[in-house]
Nucleic acid binder design. Structure first.
Lengths: 147, 147
DNA sequence: AAAATTATATCATCAACTTATATAAATGTC
DNA sequence: GACATTTATATAAGTTGATGATATAATTTT
């Protein structure tokens, strides 16, 4: 609506490209545990909000009920989560993250921070400062995803 | 090695967190064509460097030979790529992207730019300017991935 | 010429996703 | 309260996407 099209459009296109590349880099980043995006995402969400219902996870993770049910079954098999009845609704179960599941997320997070640190080291102080001052904006962008 | 640990570490941790969230947002971003990461990545790589050998794609995409062979077989089935003999090596095939495959990548890219533009609109001019000045640094970060 | 390496196809298996179906519990309507 | 509708979740069947293993042909090395 606003005639900032020229400036916004140029920024966005370059930004989008850079971010796509960074996303690719991240996805392909080696990891101790070879877990899928959704697995990690579910565990991450549970590490923040455990316990949760399956229906809640379906909403946060944007995959089908069946996929979540099956993933939780596998995670339960591997000891990363537990199913418990929901006392407030006989149809539902509550998914609890186990200490083992939580430690997967913790170690994963630490590892990725270390890897990113390695990359950041290769930037100049000016480049780092620029990223630092953009960080609040990037953080805000990220929050839009939870809206 | 350098005693910038404090500043770098603080930045990196926050940056990493914001970055993880943004990555999640991007991965979960809805799309007209529901294609997997590796599918898109292969098509993207081919759109830049077609034709390529399977062995080259194995290296760029960081998955096994078997996975690439099978994926290319499916993409060929769907008309997005073509296999042709490599005249310089009787064992090899060259994978060419088709116009259809290229248009998948193009439309995907345009769509994502539009979606990101929508998000960027919600930032203030100051926030946008901060991201714009960080963009060269982010772009540099992204390039480390191709090293 | 034979051995070793390279390039790729295929098989078997499991994870991860989809749609479809089924069942039980909860809620809404009369 | 009886019945209809909705909700929550398990499961089946199928495809895709990944792995390791195996096989075959072409090329390179010895």
């Amino acid at each position: 609506m606003e005639p900032k099209t020229n400036l916004t459009e140029l920024n966005v296109s370059d930004f989008a490209m850079a971010f796509e590349e960074l996303t690719r880099l991240f996805i392909r980043m080696p990891s101790i545990e070879k877990l899928s995006f959704t697995t990690l995402s579910v565990l991450h969400t549970l590490s923040l909000r455990s316990p949760m219902r399956l229906s809640e996870l379906i909403a946060t993770e944007q995959v089908t009920q069946s996929a979540i049910t099956q993933l939780v079954t596998r995670l339960e098999r591997d000891g990363l989560v537990e199913r418990r009845p929901d006392p407030s609704d006989g149809r539902a179960v509550l998914i609890h993250i186990t200490p083992q599941g939580a430690s997967v997320i913790d170690s994963r997070r630490s590892e990725r921070i270390m890897r990113i640190a390695k990359l950041i080291e290769r930037l100049s102080p000016e480049e780092r400062a620029a990223i630092a001052s953009a960080l609040p904006a990037l953080t805000r962008l990220a929050e839009f995803g939870n809206a």
